[in-house]
Simulated scan of single mutants.
Amino acid sequence: MNGQDPAAGTARLRPLPPVGLAPVQRALYESLAAREVPWAERAGARAIDRDGSLLGPFNPLLFSPVIGAALVEVFRADGRATSLPPRVHEIVVLTVGAAWRAGYEIYAHTPIAEAAGLSDTVIEAIVSGGRPDFESAEEAGAYDFTLQLVTRQQVDDVTYARAAVEFGDEGLVDMVLLIGLYLSVCAIINAFDIGVPVGPAESFSVR
């Protein structure tokens, strides 16, 4: 299987190592390998395999490289311009991942959430589907808003009003856009049956 650990890859899409990619695919591959892969692996998540193929939600994007590249740019915009604090950002991401039972998303963002300052107790509660005891009304508001939108497809007036007090209009829009981004990630992970990698990050140089 081209050196790929089956548990690490996509069961429904073949891995696309860099050799043989079309130019538009190669451009996206090199962009991801230069930015998203190091970001994920610094956090402790495997994002590239021994043969150079990408892991997690990255490999599927190469099958639709124009739209995939546009989606990546929205993620990058969120990273540099969101008004949400890092802890809130990761509460939202983990809440979406837990609701969708998207293993790779939870695997990749748990260490990022830890680095942002969330406790193991809070992270474990979110991932298990329980409501944590949050340290602030801001964090509780983000969790309740996200959970309702993801699981009920709407947000009740009381929950919306509480979140609006904490985040204002800009923050609420940023939160909804973030939820949408990670719903896309979780849809990719679940639709293509992407597993959680086994073992440490691999070393691979793009050639």
Rank of each mutant, 00 (worst) to 15 (best):
Thr95Cys: 07
Ala108Tyr: 06
Gly129Val: 08
Val88Arg: 02
Arg76Asn: 12
Ile126Pro: 02
Ala116Met: 10
Ser53Phe: 07
Val173Gly: 04
Pro65Ser: 13
Tyr182Met: 01
Thr10Ser: 15
Ser205Glu: 14
Leu21Lys: 04
Leu16Thr: 02
Leu62Pro: 03
Ile179Gly: 06
Leu94Tyr: 09
Gly97Gln: 04
Leu32Trp: 10
Gly103Trp: 03
Arg46Cys: 03
Trp39Arg: 15
Glu90Tyr: 11
Val37Ser: 03
Ala40His: 13
His89Pro: 01
Pro197Asn: 08
Gly195Asn: 10
Ala70Asp: 11
Tyr182Val: 01
Leu178Tyr: 03
Pro6Glu: 03
Leu147Glu: 02
Ile48Gly: 00
Ala8Arg: 03
Pro111Tyr: 03
Ala27Leu: 14
Gly129His: 08
Arg76His: 12
Pro60Tyr: 10
Arg76Ser: 08
Ala102Met: 08
Ala43Glu: 04
Ser136Arg: 07
Gly130Cys: 08
Ser203His: 12
Gly168Tyr: 11
Asp193Lys: 11
Tyr29Trp: 09
Val155Ile: 13
Leu13Asp: 00
Ala47Val: 01
Phe75Thr: 10
Leu84Gly: 06
Ala140Cys: 06
Ile106His: 05
Ala40Met: 15
Glu30Tyr: 04
Ala70Pro: 00
Arg76Cys: 02
Ile48Val: 15
Arg46Phe: 00
Asp144Glu: 15
Ala77Cys: 07
Ala137Asp: 09
Val127Arg: 13
Val88Asn: 04
Ile189Gly: 03
Val88Asp: 00
Arg35Ile: 07
Phe192Asp: 05
Ala201Met: 03
Ala115Tyr: 02
Arg12Ser: 05
Phe58Ser: 00
Phe75Ala: 11
Gly168Ser: 08
Val198Asp: 14
Leu177Pro: 00
Ile188Phe: 05
Tyr107Ser: 01
Val196Gly: 03
Ala43Asn: 08
Ala22Trp: 06
Ala81Lys: 10
Leu62Tyr: 07
Gly44Ala: 09
Thr82Lys: 14
Ala108Gln: 11
Leu84Cys: 08
Ala113Cys: 12
Ser136Ile: 07
Ala33Met: 15
Gly56Trp: 04
Arg35Gly: 10
Pro132Asp: 06
Val196Ala: 01
Leu62Met: 08
Arg101Asp: 06
Ser128Tyr: 06
Leu172Phe: 09
Val72Cys: 05
Tyr104Ile: 03
Ser31Glu: 12
Leu61Met: 15
Trp100Lys: 12
Gly68Cys: 10
Ala77Glu: 15
